[in-house]
Structure formats: C-alpha cells, structure tokens
C-alpha cells in the first residue's frame, strides 16, 4: 500500500474537493472495512469522512433518513430505526457480520461496496430505498435498485454518498437468510414486504432475493402474482416457487445453482408468512 496522506474531512464539500483533487488516486474511508481489505495500488490519499457530519439517523414523517456514515451497530440499536417498519431494518442489521465489524462498517459503505453476497442491498432494494449523493455539479438521488443498474462504482469515484432515504410503507417487511453459521455471509437471502387493502387483499408486494450469488434483484413477476390476492399459506407457497423460477441463480464456492433454486421457495415462503402475520396483526 502506497498511502501518502490520510485526511480528516470536516464536511462533504471538503471530502468531495479532496476526492476530485486526487483524480482517481484518492479513496473515501468511512468504517474502512472494505477499503482496508481491497485497496487498489494506485490509491495515494485516504479521505476519512466519519467526522463529516453524515452519521445522523432521523425520522421524517413515516420515512427514515440514515446518514452514509452511520454504523451498522448504531443503526441496529437506534430508537428511530426500531420505530421504522416494525424494526425491520434493525433486525436485518442483526444478521450482518458480528458486533466488532458492525461497530466499524457503515450503511454508506455497504451501499457503495454492494457486495453481491451482502444482506443490506437486498433489504434496501425491497424497501425502495433512495441513495443521495453529492458530485461536482449537484446533489443527485436515485433508488438504490436503479443505482446498481448504472455504473455506480464510477459515479462514486467522483461523488460522496451522503444519505439513504427509506420510504414509509403501509404494511410490513420480513427478512430471511440462509448461511452456514450466524456470523457467515448468506448462501441466499430475501426480503419481502406486503400491504393489505380495505378488503384484506394484498394491495402491494415487494420481493427481493440476493446472494444468488448475484447482487439482489426485485422479482416483479412474484410481486404481481401476489397483488390483489387474499393472503394464504397456498399463496406463499406459490409465490416461493415462482420466485425460484424467476431468480437468476448461479454456482459459487458456497452453494450450487441447483441448491439455491431448491431453497428459494422456502425462504421466500417464510418471509411472506412473517410479513403476512405482521401486517394482519396490525389490523
């Protein structure tokens, strides 16, 4: 590692101007977990943004706004986060890594690193989370799902991710993950959300599956299958099988595509069951 300077940015403007001045030879550091593990050789300057005022967590109406440098453990234990969507996001954070890594790793880091095996992108895509970032010209925003369809790594070489905005949903979400042990990364994960209309039929559904081993994707066909239906065990079962048919799965050192296709119905069914129980309990 040929790091020549370590900067402590006092605000977003300073972080951005330093990043641009390095012209590709600088890297932003929040928790530093991913930077430390995989720093490209050309990086000469590290720009620490943990004191740049991006660690806040707040509620805006039913929405939740999380600063890019809020730590995963800070999010997990936040009162605001526990009050958002029945504590769904807090529960997801409990599945991610272990305490001493969650004390370092940040939500912004998880969004920017976008590891295909990670749990957080799956949850954020299901929630319809929006990323907000500052570049040389302006503040930009896009749903995380859309961001991943763009050359986001290039975007964040010349921009500072500032916050993640999570919309309010009238309904409930649940997260499921299969892994070899509690601290390990997912073999496959999913996040599902449901809302009911006045007649008790499903008004909206959100279904995202990740670590397949590809980055999380929404399964719109499954969402459409659920919408307008009355919740039932048979419906969750059918949605699970549809999810397995729709999801893009592959082999990696951890699991085969065949195995992933066999277990997706189970985790999708479990997530829908839990979300369904939570949303019906609300009534």
């Amino acid at each position: 590692m040929a790091i020549k300077r370590y900067h402590y940015a006092r605000d977003v403007e300073e972080a951005l101007s330093l990043l641009l001045a390095y012209e590709g030879r600088g890297a932003l550091v929040a928790g530093g977990v991913d930077v430390a593990r995989g720093l490209p050789g050309e990086i000469e300057g590290l720009i620490d943004i943990t004191a740049a005022g991006l660690s806040g967590i707040s509620r805006e109406g039913g929405r939740l706004v999380v600063g890019a440098t809020a730590t995963l453990e800070g999010i997990r234990t936040s009162r605001e986060v526990k009050a958002y969507m029945g504590g769904f996001l807090s529960e997801v954070m409990g599945h991610v890594a272990t305490l001493s890594l969650r004390n370092m790793a940040t939500l912004g880091g998880a969004v920017v690193s976008a590891h295909p095996w990670a749990d957080i992108p799956t949850a954020l895509i299901a929630l319809g989370a929006e990323a907000v970032w500052r570049n040389e010209e302006r503040t930009e925003r896009a749903p995380v799902e859309e961001l991943y369809a763009r050359p986001f790594r290039a975007i964040f070489r010349r921009a500072v991710l500032t916050e993640i905005r999570l919309p309010a949903w009238d309904g409930a979400f649940a997260f499921e993950k299969l892994s070899r042990n509690a601290g390990d990364i997912a073999l496959v994960n999913c996040a599902c959300g449901l809302g009911l209309d006045a007649e008790g039929k499903i008004a909206w559904a959100r279904v995202a599956v990740g670590a397949t081993p590809y980055r999380a994707e929404r399964l719109v066909a499954v969402e459409e299958l659920l919408a307008g239906e009355v919740p039932s065990e048979a419906l969750w079962e059918e949605a699970g099988h549809r999810a397995a048919a729709e999801a893009r799965v592959g082999d990696d050192m951890r699991a085969s595509a065949e195995w992933r296709r066999a277990v997706i119905p189970v985790i999708v069914r479990r997530a829908l069951e839990r979300a369904g129980r939570a949303v019906m309990g609300d009534r």
Binding site: V33, A36, R37, L46, D48, T50, T98, S100, N103, M104
Partner: peptide, 27 residues
C-alpha cells in the same frame, strides 16, 4: 481479514477489529 477476532481492541469502549482499522482512526 476481519474474520477471527484475535485483533479485537476497544475504541471508546466498543469492540472493533484493529486489523481493518486504519491507525489514523485512533486520533
């Protein structure tokens, strides 16, 4: 690589992995 926990120290009382923490962060 942050897997084993043998390098754990406390930063302001909270456990962290010193192998993945830049020394500059102790400032």
């Amino acid at each position: 690589t942050g897997e084993c926990g043998a390098c754990t120290v406390l930063l302001d009382g909270k456990p962290i992995r010193s192998c993945l923490t830049f020394a500059a962060k102790a400032k």
